[in-house]
């Protein structure tokens, strides 16, 4: 079975439009095991109940932002090793640097093409 069929993902974004866009891109890459959440806490709770390989999260969210979620994931034993791809509207070096320190696997700048998404994921998990 191809890797893309095995991969289980969690997409976190407060905007349903963005969740739609990301899942749509994933769908065209061939990644179909995708769960979504509209905020960090819900995402964390969901991946605890149903573990995933990779969390794709927006940076800018109310309450818990993307990096905050990453920090919580890394500090929860069950999710400490999950892959984390940050999606951000602004590739602010400060954000990326903070992400690096927290153990972010990769980031992707909005707006993105499907190919960008594929490359960003492949950089983490290998060829899809």
């Amino acid at each position: 079975m191809a890797l893309r069929e095995q991969l289980r993902l969690m997409v976190v974004d407060d905007m349903s439009t963005s969740r739609g866009l990301i899942t749509q891109a994933l769908d065209s890459i061939g990644i179909r095991n995708v769960a979504t959440a509209s905020d960090g806490a819900a995402a964390l709770q969901a991946v605890l109940k149903s573990p995933v390989h990779l969390v794709i999260s927006d940076y800018n969210m109310p309450g818990m932002d993307g990096l905050h979620l990453l920090h919580y994931l890394r500090n929860t034993p069950q999710t400490a090793k999950v892959g984390f791809l940050l999606i951000t509207g602004r590739a602010d070096p400060a954000i990326i640097d903070k992400g690096r320190k927290l153990g972010m696997n990769n980031f992707l700048k909005k707006p993105f093409e499907t190919a960008d998404m594929k490359a960003a994921i492949e950089a983490i998990v290998g060829r899809l």
Binding site: K49, P51, K81, D92, N106, A120, I124
Partner: peptide
Amino acid sequence: EEEISDFQPLTLDLGDLGAPA
């Protein structure tokens, strides 16, 4: 916008997902 050129993606070993909590 400032280009972020020095970020190296961290690769991930896809092991078992582990049991759900």
